[in-house]
């Protein structure tokens, strides 16, 4: 399991900033415009995931073999990192809700 956790981090590292930029940008949009933006946020995140797969496949597809040689399929690695990324997004969204509520109260 420690091995898998490390591999997930190695896989996530190069796409961490890209995907979390999508999350942060939407968090700011949510604070400014509220709950009406939520469906758009989901679309925004999936756009991030689609672009990640496209960019990774176009530029660093070769390294997929590293993860396969470690015993993991690319599909499984993407499922792990997108799952973790989505959790981070949910937490970020929750924090944004709290900030927005505080701003509205103020």
């Amino acid at each position: 399991m420690a091995n898998t956790r490390t591999l997930i981090w190695y896989f996530y590292r190069p796409i961490f900033l890209w995907n979390n930029t999508f999350s942060l940008v939407f968090a700011v949009l949510f604070i400014l415009h509220g709950y009406n933006t939520l469906p758009f946020g989901l679309f925004f995140k999936f756009l991030g995931y689609a672009s990640t797969i496209f960019l990774q496949s176009a530029t660093t597809k070769n390294v997929y073999m590293y993860y396969r040689n470690a015993g993991h399929s690319t599909r499984r690695m993407y499922a792990y990192v997108f799952g973790i990324d989505f959790l981070i997004y949910i937490v970020l969204l929750f924090v944004s809700m709290l900030i927005r509520n505080e701003l509205l109260k103020g």
């Binding site: 590292r13 190069p14 070769n62 390294v63 590293y66 040689n69 470690a70």
Partner: peptide, 26 residues
């Protein structure tokens, strides 16, 4: 389950990670 390993024609090690850390996983 790492039953078969494969050396492709192209390089396969990811960049930006120390070789020791990369090697330990395989």
């Amino acid at each position: 389950n790492s039953r078969i390993a494969y050396l492709p024609q192209h390089n396969y090690l990811p960049g930006g990670i120390a070789i020791e850390k990369l090697a330990r996983q395989i």
